[in-house]
């Protein structure tokens, strides 16, 4: 799961002190001049973020031959092909698996882990574990992907060797070469890489819970698990909700780790939307069809994006 995905909304803030824009005629020119502060950002984002995405939809209604440069309008044919392409459904399924498993480990698992760590007596220990678990998140997915490519290798890999050394020879297999296990192996790597980051975020959220609540609960005789469920969990629910949405968004943008570890194989069993887009657009010459696949990613991320907006608004956190 991309570190960036987790970042991209991990942050909300309290009451915005919005300022009333009072435009007296005297200062109208000055007010207009203040556009200079945002001009660079607006141009950059408009040109390189919004415009290509619009262009993508135009490309998706065409059939392009990259060699001759011929472009023909095909209307919605590429979208029709999407519906009948079994690999698109495999990809959607894999992306969804990614989302569900990541929610289990990187949201709920990370929450529990953060609670355990924050429950430790010594501050030095807490800092130590948070940092240790975070290390994989600081390393490029390309590196961790390649690393796990080796770990899963039958001849030199750690995993099969470890299984053999504890007598589980029956489980030994080419993890990335078997269509049944390839995508799970990739997702497992992603959990290994990403859980430390969300643990850190939850740890910070837990630190913000007023201590008095716990003191009061202890006086009432509530045990650790009771306090976890009636104080820690409800008071970090906002964070949890946000993390779920971010995790889903990230899961539908997965590209790097799949590309590095299997490139979608074997037999397209570990294909995700991002890699199928690459395969179609850049390997099979179907720019138009690739753009239509990009359209699917757009719709999913847009829906989760809007969900995020609404969620943060409901929580009285506004832009």
């Amino acid at each position: 799961m991309a570190v960036t995905g987790v970042n991209s909304g991990a942050v909300t803030y309290g009451a915005a002190t919005g300022q009333g824009a009072s435009g007296t005629p005297r200062s109208r020119l000055r007010n207009l001049l203040s556009f200079r502060w945002v001009a660079v950002a607006v141009i950059l984002i408009g040109w390189f973020v919004y415009y290509p995405i619009v262009d993508n939809f135009i490309v998706s209604t065409t059939d392009q031959d990259i060699f001759t440069g011929e472009v023909s309008d095909v209307g919605l044919a590429n979208y029709d092909r999407l519906l009948h392409d079994p690999v698109v459904w495999t990809s959607l399924w894999n992306n969804s698996l990614y989302a569900v498993i990541s929610i289990v480990f990187q949201v709920f698992g990370a929450f529990l882990l953060a609670a355990i760590i924050e429950g430790l007596g010594s501050e030095r220990l807490r800092r130590f574990w948070r940092a240790i678990y975070f290390v994989p998140s600081a390393i490029s997915i390309t590196v961790t992907g390649l690393l796990f490519y080796f770990i899963y290798q039958p001849e030199i890999g750690l995993l099969d060797a470890a299984l053999r050394s504890v007598g589980l020879d029956a489980l030994v297999k080419p993890w990335l070469g078997d269509p049944k296990t390839a995508i799970y192996a990739i997702i497992a790597m992603s959990q290994w890489q990403g859980f430390g980051y969300s643990t850190l975020l939850f740890a910070i959220a837990i630190q913000k819970i007023p201590r008095e609540l716990y003191d009061a609960a202890i006086i009432d005789g509530a045990g650790p698990s009771r306090r976890l469920w009636s104080i820690t969990f409800p008071l970090t629910r906002e964070m949890t909700g946000l993390m779920i949405i971010i995790t889903i968004t990230g899961a539908f943008q997965v590209f790097n780790e799949v590309m590095v570890m299997t490139a979608g194989g074997p037999n397209n069993s570990s294909q995700v939307l991002g890699t199928w887009l690459y395969q179609q657009g850049f390997i099979e010459n179907n720019f138009g069809y690739g753009a239509a696949i990009a359209g699917v990613i757009f719709v999913v991320t847009m829906v989760t994006g809007i969900a995020q907006l609404l969620y943060t608004r409901r929580r009285r956190v506004q832009f």
Binding site: E155, W175, L176, G177, P179, P266
Partner: peptide, 11 residues
């Protein structure tokens, strides 16, 4: 057999 899909040609 089936393990071939997990091995690279180089190996």
């Amino acid at each position: 057999g089936a393990t071939m899909n997990g091995e690279s040609y180089a190996s």
